[in-house]
């Protein structure tokens, strides 16, 4: 479990925005929390998986993909803001993510 600080949040946001700007050839300054990943950026669900891999490596996370999958089914991600929030939860809780459902 990683300790979440304000720096972590800033770092995660920066990585997410840079990733979408690069992959979707979008202007990073135009990507906001309410930007739709599919409608506005023409992104795809695979990008979520790729970001998880990036964060798993960066923060040495212990989390199984199926755990994230189970959580994501009940908490679908549509916007950049939602995606950042979910990444923060994944970093913070790792495999305990599903405990939020109890």
């Amino acid at each position: 479990m990683a300790k979440i600080t304000e720096n972590t949040r800033t770092e995660v946001r920066e990585i997410v925005l840079a990733f979408f700007a690069e992959e979707c050839e979008a202007d990073k300054s135009q990507i906001k929390d309410n930007t739709s990943i599919i409608k506005d950026l023409d992104g795809d669900s695979l990008m979520f998986l790729e970001l998880i891999e990036i964060f798993k490596k960066k923060y040495n996370l212990d989390i199984e993909l199926k755990t994230i999958g189970k959580y994501a089914v009940k908490h679908p991600v549509e916007t950049i803001g939602q995606l950042i929030e979910m990444q923060m939860l994944i970093i913070e809780l790792e495999n305990r993510l599903l405990e939020l459902e109890k």
Binding site: E23, C24, E25, D42, L46, M47
Partner: peptide
């Protein structure tokens, strides 16, 4: 071809 799709 968009960059994202091109990579796939």
């Amino acid at each position: 071809v968009k960059k994202r799709a091109a990579g796939q």
